[in-house]
């Protein structure tokens, strides 16, 4: 199962609709980075509205993806993290400090827009 990555002008949109296992997460990391490389996008929005559970490994992968994309010149915003997911992450001591977040896809795009100064 691969996670679809959509291109929207300069941005890439990713909506994760299923529970992610470790393998899918790694696959996603590779897919996203190569897509950024190919399309030369400057911003990525990853929407997690439908995700009900994130474990420490997935959280680490997501944090890594954000840093890696940053290195390649693409800003990443995570959107739609559910309350239950947020509480679990905080309880696990995962604060994802370097990751920008937004309430929903719309605000995520606005945030990207602001941060890229366009």
């Amino acid at each position: 199962m691969r996670i679809p990555i959509l291109k929207l002008h300069h941005y890439l949109l990713v909506s994760i609709q299923t529970e992610i296992d470790d393998h899918t997460a790694i696959q996603f990391q590779e897919d996203l980075l190569s897509k950024i490389h190919k399309s030369g996008s400057s911003g990525v929005v990853i929407d997690l509205t439908s995700v009900e559970m994130i474990d420490s490994f997935i959280a680490k992968v997501l944090g890594d993806v954000v840093t890696m994309s940053d290195l390649m010149g693409a800003k990443v915003v995570l959107t739609g993290i559910q309350p239950a997911v947020a509480i679990t992450l905080i309880d696990l001591g995962i604060h994802m400090k370097n990751v920008p977040t937004a309430l929903n896809l719309e605000q995520g795009l606005t945030k990207l827009h602001q941060e890229l100064g366009e």
Binding site: L78, I81, A86, L89, I90, M96, T101, A102, L103, N104
Partner: peptide, 12 residues
């Protein structure tokens, strides 16, 4: 602090 961190995670 935990509550504030969690609020940041959901994007506000």
């Amino acid at each position: 602090i935990q509550a504030a961190e969690a609020v940041r995670l959901i994007g506000s």
